[in-house]
Design a binder for these strands. Structure first.
Lengths: 221, 221
DNA sequence: AGTTGCCATTGACCTAGGTCAAAAATATTT
DNA sequence: AAATATTTTTGACCTAGGTCAATGGCAACT
């Protein structure tokens, strides 16, 4: 397992920082270990700092009055989250919880803002980070509003295929129930869609492994 | 009507820049006048620069295969758009078109990136801008996925009330059809919801003016 | 091996809201 | 003002997908 400074040095956010700065960043970062399913923070909590995943996976999500969850994003090793709130001094806009046992790095607000202000390259990295995230959100809005559930699933499978660099099969990186939350649907419906797409010969489902039998038609969904 | 430098100096993005820089910014900005309903750019167009609204209103939107529109955001005077693409050198992630006759400022990519790199305060403004936008998008995802149409409408009305600083009535800043696109529904459904909420005594609709008769219950939607 | 608990699947039912078509109300042009 | 075009509203119908409840798998623990 990597140590603090390894994670930091390899992260996109801190890429290109001089050694001295990296050490400085590592110094202000506090390690936090959390078990599976533990909350990191809640919506409307005051944001005294932000986090980076060192190990594990963290979901950012909103909850409806009725208790339904919508996952906004899932973060893995090297990815920062909660930074948005840090810059306004506003409370966190959503909840965060671990999906598996995880190790996080915590960066207190003050010192980080100071670093960014002093470090143009860090500021540019941050801008790139936020831009990418905006693009993802725009995509998610498109998916939720303009596609039905099968289309959203297909879109996610293609995303996984890209990420895992295969076009014959992918491995789900989430339990199916959580995937339903990410796609904005219920576990029951997701299950039915899996069944239907299997019958249609589009995919074959084997536990968490999904065989992609027809990329062409998958693209049209 | 304000001139170029007036718009720039008063914008959030360029706030706090020294005089000289402002003049420099104004120098690289090109004015562009567009009639109502004209396209500014299309999704996947190469992004050679970004825009700021000087006068009028511009919608950013995605279009489904079937032709349905989802508006991501509507920008008014002083607000920049299309900057996200500029930082990656990636194509635009969505379409942009005017809602009314508008005047825009166009900033070519190269020179703007140079400015941001050289100007920490501009970079910080940009970060704040993007953060705010992320927050809005997160909200929109929440609305689309976790609320039904009446809830989304109520949420928008409250947003307008805040923006227009009144709590008795608001004036729609969009034709109803466009509002439907923004809320992720159809004009027909929106019309029905207006009718229903009127019967329930929540609001009274008078053309583009919506009287807010019961803020309490409106909040619970 | 048996028990406990969790997750995934399947069935039955119901409703929010989409679609299509027509009418009515507003704008815009001549 | 008349004529035409554009929005908005209303009605009738239909379906994607949500909810509730029951059942089946599977893993962890004793």
């Amino acid at each position: 397992m990597k140590n603090k400074i390894g994670i930091i040095a390899d992260s996109f956010l801190f890429k290109g920082l001089p050694e001295a700065q990296l050490a400085e960043v590592a110094r202000i970062a506090k390690e936090k270990k959390l078990g599976r399913g533990e909350a990191v923070f809640f919506e409307d909590d005051p944001a005294s700092g932000f986090y980076m995943v060192a190990e594990g996976r963290v979901k950012i999500f909103k909850v409806s009055m009725g208790g339904k969850e919508q996952i906004l994003h899932v973060f893995g090793p090297g990815e920062p989250f909660g930074e948005v709130a840090v810059f306004h001094g506003q409370p966190f806009p959503a909840n965060a919880a671990t999906l598996v046992r995880s190790t996080l790095l915590y960066f207190p607000r003050q010192e980080f803002v100071r670093l960014v202000t002093a470090n143009p390259s860090l500021a540019l990295n941050m801008i790139a980070m936020l831009s990418l995230r905006l693009r993802r959100f725009a995509n998610q809005i498109e998916n939720l509003s303009l596609k039905e559930v099968p289309g959203r699933l297909a879109s996610y499978l293609r995303y996984l295929a890209e990420e895992q660099a295969r076009d014959d099969r992918v491995v789900l990186d989430l339990p199916k129930g959580q995937l339903a939350s990410l796609l904005g649907t219920s576990p029951e419906t997701l299950s039915r869609i899996f069944a239907r797409m299997s019958e249609e010969g589009l995919i074959r489902v084997q536990g968490k492994t999904i065989h992609l039998l027809d990329m062409e038609r998958l693209r049209e969904r």
